[in-house]
Nucleic acid binder design. Structure first.
Lengths: 203, 203
DNA sequence: TGTACATCAGTGAACGCGCGTTCACTGATGTAC
DNA sequence: TGTACATCAGTGAACGCGCGTTCACTGATGTAC
């Protein structure tokens, strides 16, 4: 249509990526066709390949973008134990469960990412490492590698719990799982913050 | 081909369901076409509708079957703390991570189930409740509703951890997450077994 | 200031393909005579 | 025991459709003169 400065094409590209993030999280990647994605961005199918080399290219880009947004949104509020608790309560809320399009990309796309291209898994890993290293500071663990595993473990719990709550047809159980999840994650966090490391008194 | 007794058609149906379980877990439901599923069972596409009314019908049936198998396979080995620990170490093993087709249906299909039909979510919920009630006996919690939430919470952790390990491109981190996951799940289990209920000393 | 032109983001039709589903047909079987 | 027939699990071609991808074209713009 128009021949604007280079910032206009960039803006269109960003719009496609953002809308695709919503659509992917709502319907799943395989159920989101190019024509639908472009229509979401106010464009027609043909323009897609002026912005991305393939659908896989878009997927990897969207995964990176989604994790970046999530990180930006939460980094300020996760620096202390109180902020993290607020994050957890938000994460494991019925609202978040019922609105995947606006929610956590890991909870909505993790299986698709696991089956995805190397580029997609790489984008996910890099994005997660950035988030993890913020939480790792909360977990009082001097060994960086172990701190990362502990932080990722906490996210894994949140992800699994939200997914389970979304898949359960029994509304009461689905809600109870969220409530219990908040409890468990905070216990785990306190344990990691207090403990000296791996050694817990078992049996 | 043949006109055998009614057990022969039943056997074919069971073969389709079993093979479809593997295929769904490996490639995802949306990437598994009817022709491929039937070919896996040694048949051609046309015979599908003599066994199922639609693909959604098959999906719900497969989900129920997969959870039933998982329950049968593990119920005997999950009755005490020692058996459950063995289950957890098996579940969070690199082998399980690298072989989704033979593995846990929740870890491979939970997002698809969450986006699925009511019948599929119902099948999942019923199957999970059967498994949950076995573990709930381990969790020393008199309130049945709470015991179920706690048991489901433990499964949710296992599921999220395995999925995360599958999606991470960094092999070292992916392994560390599994190891840390075993640690955390066992801590959580001991806590539920020892604790009197919800009230933990926080702050 | 006014006109001609090059640019290029976006259009929309078309490609081959696999999807879920339907259906007329096949052919090996158990049964009837 | 031998033949004719009814059954019905499974075949394979076809349906309309949406998929990812390609490409000749459009038309509003900034620039050159």
């Amino acid at each position: 249509m128009a021949r604007y400065g280079s910032e206009h094409k960039e803006a269109t590209r960003r719009r496609i990526i953002e809308k695709a993030g919503h659509r992917f999280k709502r319907d799943g990647i395989d159920r989101s066709g190019i024509a639908t994605l472009m229509s979401d961005a106010g464009l027609t199918n043909g323009a897609f390949y002026a912005h991305f080399s393939s659908k896989d290219d878009l997927v990897a880009t969207v995964v990176a973008d989604q994790l970046h947004r999530q990180h930006e949104r939460n980094r300020a509020g996760m620096l202390d134990r109180q902020g993290f608790e607020r994050f957890v309560r938000d994460y494991l809320s019925p609202y978040h469960r019922d609105h995947p399009a606006e929610g956590c990309p890991s909870a909505a796309l993790l299986e698709d990412i696991g089956r995805g291209t190397d580029a997609t898994k790489r984008a996910y890993t890099d994005g997660m490492l950035a988030m993890i290293d913020d939480v790792a500071a909360l977990v009082e663990e001097p060994d960086r590698r172990l701190a990362r595993a502990k932080a990722m473990g906490i996210f894994a719990y949140l992800i699994g719990t939200l997914q389970a709550s979304r898949a359960l047809a029994d509304g009461e159980l689905a809600n109870d799982v969220l409530t219990q999840g908040i409890e468990n994650v905070l216990v785990l966090l306190d344990l990691h913050m207090a403990g000296t490391g791996t050694d817990r008194s078992r049996k």
